[in-house]
Amino acid sequence: KKKPLTQEQLEDARRLKAIYEKKKNELGLSQESVADKMGMGQSGVGALFNGINALNAYNAALLAKILKVSVEEFSP
């Protein structure tokens, strides 16, 4: 059984999803295209955005690059 995410991890996910929602049209992104760039399925990206799975440093760095932001913008 997976450990529930901490409040901090949930807040990171909320900020990440908000940045994605704000930038997806400008950058021409969908959850599917983000998933392709990350080498995972769309459901995996959804789980990161919705605070189901915790972000690790690798995925955080990859998402920051895809969204053209710094990791600190969603994970201070």
Rank of each mutant, 00 (worst) to 15 (best):
G44T: 14
N25Y: 12
R14Q: 12
T6R: 09
I19L: 11
M40V: 08
L27V: 06
L10R: 13
L62V: 11
G46V: 15
A61Q: 14
A54D: 05
K3Y: 12
A47F: 08
A35T: 05
E26W: 07
S30A: 05
D12L: 06
A35R: 02
L63N: 05
R15G: 00
V45Q: 02
K22E: 12
V34K: 03
D36K: 15
A61R: 14
N56S: 12
M40K: 02
Y20D: 06
L67D: 11
S75V: 01
K23A: 03
V69E: 04
V71N: 05
Y20N: 01
M38L: 13
L27T: 07
Y58C: 12
L48W: 04
E73R: 04
G28E: 08
S43P: 10
L5S: 07
L62Q: 15
N50W: 02
L67M: 07
S43E: 15
L27A: 04
K17I: 04
A61S: 14
S75C: 09
A64W: 00
V69F: 01
S75I: 00
F74D: 04
K37D: 09
A13F: 01
V34A: 04
V71W: 02
V45F: 01
L67K: 10
A13P: 02
L16Y: 03
S33F: 08
R14D: 07
G39N: 12
A61L: 09
N25F: 12
Q9P: 02
K17R: 12
E11D: 10
G46C: 15
K37I: 12
A57V: 12
G51S: 01
I66V: 08
E73P: 00
A60N: 08
Y20L: 06
P76T: 06
I52M: 11
P4V: 14
F49N: 03
L48R: 05
Q31K: 12
V69T: 10
S43F: 07
A64N: 02
S43Q: 14
E32L: 11
A13D: 01
N50H: 09
K23T: 02
S30G: 01
M40S: 06
K17W: 05
V69N: 05
G44Y: 14
K17T: 07
L48G: 03
A13C: 11
K24H: 07
M40H: 04
L16S: 04
V69K: 02
G41Y: 10
R15K: 08
N53T: 15
L16P: 02
A13S: 09
A54K: 08
V71Y: 00
D36S: 13
A35F: 00
Q31D: 12
Y58M: 12
Y58N: 15
L16M: 03
L5N: 06
A57Q: 14
E26L: 11
E8G: 07
D12R: 02
Q42V: 15
G39M: 08
E72K: 12
A60F: 03
N59F: 06
I19Y: 02
R14I: 08
K17S: 07
G46D: 15
F74T: 02
R14S: 09
E26Q: 13
S43D: 15
Q31T: 11
G28W: 00
G51L: 00
A18G: 10
Y58L: 10
T6W: 00
K24N: 00
L5H: 04
L10H: 09
E32P: 06
A18Y: 08
G51M: 00
K37E: 13
V69Q: 05
K1A: 08
A57S: 14
R15C: 01
D36V: 14
K68T: 04
A60L: 00
R14G: 09
N50P: 03
D36N: 14
V45A: 04
L55S: 01
L67F: 08
K37W: 09
S75A: 13
N25K: 15
D36G: 10
K68Q: 13
A13K: 00
M38Y: 00
K68L: 04
R15H: 01
N53F: 05
K23M: 04
K65Y: 00
Q31V: 13
L62A: 14
S30P: 01
M38N: 03
